[in-house]
């Protein structure tokens, strides 16, 4: 655990006034507040550091203690002990017992080991807001395979030691968030619990490309079938399907298989389409006889033109 220079974090001098500290904090908080930087983990980390620095430097008692013991944080325990002995005589606790100050988005309450060693775990104090109402929201991320997202299925998660079994509807999108109302932190003063937000990250374990509810795939097609027509069997997410190839099908021709794409989220029985692009493959390692036939064909074509 390293010493943290809170003055440096806020970019202020050691003799900065309370007003300077407030101004510096607000300037940095406006830049790095997680609500202003969605999906940016770096901003969350930076904001925690800024918040912690402000927590200490904006409180005259904490600032005094930090200035006195900050660099020798290991001695802080002795300081704490002495302080406890003093306050045993009925005096209030100078740092503890405060109310939690939330900044939303679930990033609050994360203080460094350095902070905890100096101020204890209850070092955070009350902010502007008074009594809390709704409990804090929890956020969790879950990884799914595309083949799993194809079907509605049950999934069990453990969030804060609590097992939660949810139904993941087929067709869920990559990055989609599901809200489970009431599974967040308990509310205060009879207020509702916070909510649990689960973000799904979907990894493609198939050969298909998914664009919304539609799927895209390539299908190799031999020259003879492309020219003369015939049947090909292709794999879809729902199993094998036989396709009729029309004669003289050109390379890169795309056919649409209606309803063979991905299920539409929360619309039972509704599916996107599957787009199959043919890739005509020219024959290789031709036998003498085959070469003869191609030459004959070439001559025939020349004569026609």
């Amino acid at each position: 655990m390293d010493y943290i220079d809170y003055y440096k974090t806020l970019g202020v001098a050691k003799d900065a006034s309370a007003d300077d500290i407030k101004k510096a904090y607000r300037k940095l908080a406006r830049k790095h507040h997680p609500d202003l930087n969605p999906d940016d983990k770096e901003a969350v980390k930076l904001f925690q550091q800024i918040n912690e620095a402000h927590e200490v430097l904006s409180d005259p008692e904490k600032r005094k203690k930090y200035d006195q013991y900050g660099a020798d944080w290991k001695q802080a325990d002795q300081f704490e002990q002495a302080r406890r002995q003093q306050s045993a005589g009925g005096q209030g606790q100078p740092f503890g017992g405060g109310e939690y100050h939330s900044y939303g988005s679930g990033e609050d309450g994360d203080f460094s080991d350095f902070f905890s060693s100096l101020f204890g775990n209850n070092g955070s104090r009350s902010g502007r807001s008074g009594t809390r109402f709704k409990g804090q929201d929890y956020r969790a991320a879950v990884q799914l395979k595309l083949s799993d997202a194809y079907q509605t299925h049950q999934q069990t998660f453990t969030v804060n030691g609590k097992n939660i079994r949810i139904t993941v509807p087929a067709g869920i999108e990559d990055g989609q968030e599901i809200k489970i109302a009431g599974y967040g932190a308990p509310g205060a003063n009879g207020g509702p619990n916070g909510d649990l937000y689960i973000t799904f990250t979907i990894q493609n374990d198939t050969s298909f490309i998914r664009k919304g509810n539609d799927l895209y795939t390539h299908q190799p097609l031999n020259l003879y079938k492309a020219v003369l027509g015939g049947d090909v069997t292709i794999e879809t997410m729902a199993g094998k399907v036989k396709l009729t190839v029309v004669p003289e099908t050109q390379n890169e021709t795309t056919v649409r298989l209606k309803g063979k794409g991905f299920p539409v989220y929360k619309k039972d029985g509704s599916f996107g389409d599957l787009y199959v692009t043919y890739q005509v493959q020219l024959p290789t390692h031709l036998s003498e006889r085959e070469k003869e036939l191609f030459k004959e064909l070439a001559k025939e074509t020349e004569n026609r033109s």
């Binding site: 607000r26 609500d35 939303g104």
Partner: peptide, 10 residues
């Protein structure tokens, strides 16, 4: 809550 924090804290 988000707007509250932005308005009052920032």
């Amino acid at each position: 809550e988000k707007y509250m924090h932005m308005h009052y804290d920032l």
